[in-house]
């Protein structure tokens, strides 16, 4: 049984690590503001499908790692991730059966909430930045969601059939 769950966990952990790497990968300056929010997207997907295993505890720890990696205030990404994963887990039964268009709209709302939390904390701490820096990731994240969820769905299917 433990072997079984390990083989099932490995692909998902790989997805999470890959999303962290995409989040810190160097990009040209103009594209920086349009980098999709890979980590929230990944956590939304897996907490929606496996809410017992990948819940807010994971989101918190990964948020702290993201804070250190990006040099933001300690706890900023952690708080934002915990909130959106909480909402996802809370409503995972509804979101899971949404048609793709509606699910993408939900993801848009979650990403907007995520960026709003970051914006809010930055505002309280007195860090200013242009509006595109907040809206860019939400838009690109929503655009890549259908593709990303298809890929993750494939990964999950193959992990299940092999495990």
């Amino acid at each position: 049984m433990s072997n079984d769950s390990a083989s099932r966990r490995l692909p998902i952990l790989t997805c999470i690590v890959a999303s962290l790497m995409l989040a810190i990968a160097p990009m040209p300056g103009w594209a920086e503001a349009y980098r999709p929010d890979w980590v929230p997207l990944t956590l939304i997907f897996w907490s929606m499908l496996l809410p017992r295993t990948y819940s807010i505890g994971w989101a918190w720890i990964i948020g702290l790692i993201l804070d250190v990696a990006q040099g933001t205030l300690f706890g900023q990404h952690a708080l934002a991730l915990v909130l959106i994963v909480y909402i996802t887990v809370k409503f995972h039964l509804q979101i899971r059966v949404f048609p793709m268009l509606q699910m993408t709209a939900t993801v848009f709302a979650l990403l907007a909430l995520y960026q709003f939390i970051l914006f809010w904390i930055n505002g309280v701490a007195g860090i200013n930045s242009p509006a595109v820096a907040y809206w860019g990731p939400v838009l690109t994240g929503t655009i890549v969601w259908p593709l990303l969820s298809t890929i993750y769905g494939g990964i999950r299917y193959s992990a299940r059939s092999s495990g």
Binding site: P26, Q70, G71, S129, A133
Partner: peptide
């Protein structure tokens, strides 16, 4: 790496 957070100009 350069900070991926566009609000901060931080590098490693």
């Amino acid at each position: 790496s350069v900070s991926s957070d566009p609000f901060r100009h931080v590098l490693v």
